[in-house]
Amino acid sequence: MGFGVVGRALARLLLEEGERLAKRRGFRPIVVGVADSLGAAYDEGGLDMLEVLGAKERYGTVSKSSSGVRGMTGLELLGTVYADVVVEVTPTNLGDGEPGLTHIREALKSGMSVVTSNKGPLALAMPALMELARHRGAVLRFSGTVGGGTPVLDYGRRLSAGDYIEGVEGILNGTTNYILTRMTEGLEFQEALREAQERGYAERDPSMDLEGLDSACKLVIMANYVLGLKATLRDVEVKGIGGVTREEVAEAYHRDYAVKLVASIREDKLKVEPREVPRRSPLCVWGVLNAVTFKCRRLGEQTVVGRGAGGVETALSIIRDLAEVKRNLSGSLGGWA
């Protein structure tokens, strides 16, 4: 579902790495259907993805490929072809989660597993989707939603399986971190934003990042997956970086602090806000880097640092999830891995 930056990066990656995956890991994903906003293409025997990529490039929609159907929606595609796994990579929508929410819900309802990088449906309805997956014996994976290519969610989950995680602090959004970094170096907010956009770090409509909503979504996913809380976006107190001035940032810097957009969970409370972080702290990363600190009762603080998300990183995380789904299905372990 969805054939944009991430969907296409995944298709290319599967073409390039397919043979190696099959040989090394006995894992041979076959794409039987693709949908974009204008139509779909499907073939139960497996689509010729080179041709589908070509059609998308040339005509702007997969429905113009030889197996394409103009106007066929993602939902119709789900009802038409059987798949073991549905990869959901349509745009994030924090209003009602659509179309992703319906895609994921319907797939899980009919027992198909789901891999997604779409934060919207998870942020709005993660506990319900997890329950659905469990109920239908399907697997729901989403490691690309947080930390891009860095498997930070699973790292946290492993930690929490042994130790007790008392709190989480993270810099979860590359765009705002880049802007704050450049402001530390003397730019005004608007200048920094423009630069981020020029370099392709920020979307044309960067409001989700700037208002802290992107970080909030990731925090919700972390709260559910790592800490086992039943949270949704409404449970997060969110403040963006709109009010941060260059002077503030500079002044903090002189005291050996840095202003960061920090997402935190403490005593089951979820919060996103610009906050001062000691410059010596491992959490204090610069540029488009992300970092998450897990505060464990016995192991102490564990920090994971990684590059933020891009198309390829996210596609890689989807392959990782697909392999995980396969492991689960072949072990016939129903439920939520």
Binding site: A125, P127, A128, E131, L132, K230
Partner: peptide
């Protein structure tokens, strides 16, 4: 009841 779906 599927509690979480019911809640939603």
């Amino acid at each position: 009841p599927l509690m979480e779906n019911t809640r939603l």
